[in-house]
Simulated scan of single mutants.
Amino acid sequence: MSDLASLDLRVTECRACPRLVAWREEVARVKRAAFADQTYWGRPVPGFGPADAPLAIVGLAPAAHGANRTGRMFTGDRSGDVLYAALHAVGLASQPTSTHAGDGLELYGVRITAPVRCAPPANKPTPAERDNCRPWLAEELSLLPVRAIVVLGAFGWQALLPVLAAAGWSVPTPRPRFGHGVEVTLEGRHQPDRPLHLLGCYHVSQQNTFTGKLTPAMVETVLSRAKELAGLGS
């Protein structure tokens, strides 16, 4: 099995991290009062977007009452509200909202994924959990014709660089540091004529968006630049 559909299926069946399995399933059982009448997904969350996407967005992990509830990355929470509105504004999504898996949303040329696929307690995966999950991200990126990646936050940045190095991209030493608006171009050891562009963006968390550290315009600027670098137009 080497296609994205089979990968996504295998991701949803993973039980490699006992702490994360226990937490995601407890959240799905207890639920938040506002969603008491809904059936939670309660499993690892696969990536979302077309199989031929030249642009990827790498986050952190599913939110307990967001993607862990809906089964789709960045769907059903405040972080997703900001991200999908920005994607729609720059022409990468068919609609500005993402509420549930059957809401008709389509992504254009972009796939959204994460280095950790299960909702972690306090939104903080352990290093071991991150490393357990790494093969999923590595395989997913190997199946995409990716030319640019937007990384949301320092955790995703730090988790992604070893994946890219192992996949044959020339990651500088010392490794480039995360920052909002940072751009790094990596050469491929096997495809030197096909560089990979990394772009940093503050995570679309409420902590950042409610305080004004990250504004919708800032997200749109990074996504527009990534769209251009991925060959999807300016």
Score class of each variant (00 low, 15 high):
residue 11 V to K: 03
residue 14 C to W: 15
residue 15 R to C: 11
residue 16 A to C: 14
residue 16 A to P: 01
residue 17 C to I: 07
residue 18 P to F: 06
residue 18 P to D: 09
residue 28 A to E: 06
residue 34 A to Y: 06
residue 41 W to V: 03
residue 42 G to R: 07
residue 45 V to D: 09
residue 47 G to N: 12
residue 51 A to T: 14
residue 53 A to Y: 04
residue 56 A to C: 13
residue 56 A to T: 07
residue 57 I to C: 04
residue 59 G to V: 05
residue 61 A to R: 01
residue 63 A to H: 15
residue 64 A to P: 13
residue 66 G to A: 08
residue 66 G to H: 11
residue 67 A to Q: 09
residue 69 R to K: 12
residue 70 T to Q: 07
residue 71 G to R: 02
residue 74 F to L: 14
residue 76 G to V: 09
residue 79 S to W: 01
residue 87 L to Y: 01
residue 87 L to K: 01
residue 91 G to F: 01
residue 93 A to I: 03
residue 96 P to Y: 00
residue 97 T to E: 08
residue 105 L to N: 00
residue 107 L to A: 07
residue 107 L to H: 02
residue 108 Y to E: 04
residue 110 V to C: 08
residue 118 C to Y: 05
residue 121 P to R: 11
residue 122 A to G: 09
residue 123 N to Y: 12
residue 126 T to P: 11
residue 126 T to H: 12
residue 127 P to V: 11
residue 132 N to Q: 13
residue 137 L to D: 00
residue 142 S to E: 15
residue 143 L to Q: 15
residue 144 L to Q: 06
residue 147 R to E: 13
residue 153 G to Q: 10
residue 157 W to N: 07
residue 158 Q to G: 13
residue 159 A to L: 10
residue 160 L to N: 08
residue 162 P to K: 05
residue 166 A to E: 15
residue 170 S to W: 00
residue 173 T to F: 04
residue 174 P to M: 05
residue 176 P to V: 08
residue 178 F to H: 09
residue 180 H to M: 07
residue 182 V to F: 01
residue 183 E to Q: 13
residue 188 G to M: 04
residue 195 P to A: 02
residue 197 H to F: 10
residue 198 L to F: 03
residue 200 G to F: 12
residue 200 G to Q: 12
residue 207 Q to N: 09
residue 210 F to Q: 14
residue 211 T to R: 11
residue 212 G to V: 11
residue 214 L to Q: 03
residue 218 M to A: 15
residue 220 E to N: 05
residue 225 R to W: 02
residue 226 A to H: 01
residue 227 K to C: 01
residue 228 E to A: 14
residue 229 L to C: 07
residue 231 G to C: 06
residue 234 S to W: 12
